[in-house]
Design a protein around this nucleic acid. Sequence first.
DNA 1: AGTAAATGTTATCAGTTGATAACAAAACTG
DNA 2: CAGTTTTGTTATCAACTGATAACATTTACT
Lengths: 238, 238
Amino acid sequence: MGATDTMTDLTHLVETDAEPKKARRATTEQRARDIVAAAAEHFSEVGFAGSTREIAKRVGVTQPLLYRYFPTKDDLIEAVYKTVYLERWNPAWDEALKDRNRTTRERFETFYRDYVETTFTPIPLRLSYYAGLRDAEINQWYNHLIEELILKQLVREHRVELGMPDEAYVSAAALEPAWQIHGGLMHYGWRKHILKLRVAPDIEQVISDNLDMYFCIAENTYRREAHITETDIAHDEN
Amino acid sequence: MGATDTMTDLTHLVETDAEPKKARRATTEQRARDIVAAAAEHFSEVGFAGSTREIAKRVGVTQPLLYRYFPTKDDLIEAVYKTVYLERWNPAWDEALKDRNRTTRERFETFYRDYVETTFTPIPLRLSYYAGLRDAEINQWYNHLIEELILKQLVREHRVELGMPDEAYVSAAALEPAWQIHGGLMHYGWRKHILKLRVAPDIEQVISDNLDMYFCIAENTYRREAHITETDIAHDEN
DNA sequence: AGTAAATGTTATCAGTTGATAACAAAACTG
DNA sequence: CAGTTTTGTTATCAACTGATAACATTTACT
């Protein structure tokens, strides 16, 4: 329940373009953003145990000032969470993945090129891993988003393309191959941007190969699944 | 260079079975192990910023005592690193992967079943991620190990099986598909044991599917690679 | 048994932490 | 311009941090 609450709380913040009527307090909001940005940077380097004094120093203000913008350190951390997870999510992705004028393959190749470009930078990546270790909840929510909007969509659209019935329900087992290629890409980001290892230079080739891998075995897993669900009467929607 | 030094320093510790001549000081070494175990547990929960007092409390001793076994906190952290990375590495794996009496597929399926069983538990997994974020070096070394002993081996053995020349050199690009399926499994561990998400219940099926995916596209990537290296004269061994 | 080394505890230090209160300067409002 | 709100700083707190020194106890060896 907690994860779901967080989700509904956050989604309205995805579009933060609307300007207030007057430019009043623009500097105040800017300062708040500066603090969050400095906090994100610092936390991404040392984890959420990083000190508020170091953050204040980076902004160029004194440490007690932070407490006028964020009552507690946890509030600041939560603000960092929000910007990291929400500023990077493109609401257009959801619709683009449903566009049946293009092949499933094309849609997901385009999506993943875009996704890794906006997601695979050190600060958000590191924060995401630190966040997962510190408090699984927000990361659970984010992965739920990935699963619902991306991976289930992939399975569904591909099934339809294969002439199979358009079934909304996708079991954890049927979803796993999609998670595997997604996870492979995430681990690529981990190796490249966090461990600073040498990786394959052409990420677009990696994406392409991963989709090849997926489409190569997907049909078999769908059929395996279909065989199970035929005999499995009670399956819930979630 | 640092990573390589660490590697050579650590490898001799893999086999710690040899008992000292007399059982003298066995309790001392046991206490040291207890401290490291408590530290591993605590650090795995809150990260390496965790306090020495909490560790001492878990062992049931006073905090200054830790400093008789480990001069500084960093020394204790390093000891935790060693146990985590080395106690879990089975030296037999290296040889088993070279056994050409079994198909490449069989060898790697057996290996991965064993590997995930010994590696995918919360404490080592969490420590590994915390370690990567805190200090990439040791994790770089470990990934180097994976790459050299597992993934390059997979590419090489599979190439031979396909009748291609037994080439020791494997480029980063040719290695990437192998990294992708490995990374997919790592991310499975992340989702299951750290984020506590619902995942596909049958890990052996996941491994099997991943190997299917790999062998499905591998040949193409080998040929792509062969085509490049033909025209590429200067390629170093590392 | 007697002594020295090894193992443990108590007391304490200086530095850092998140957080608060009191005060100062700036900006907005009438 | 006067007064009020907003934004900022200084000073300070109590709790906690890694680490050290002095002292106590246990263990091992002759």
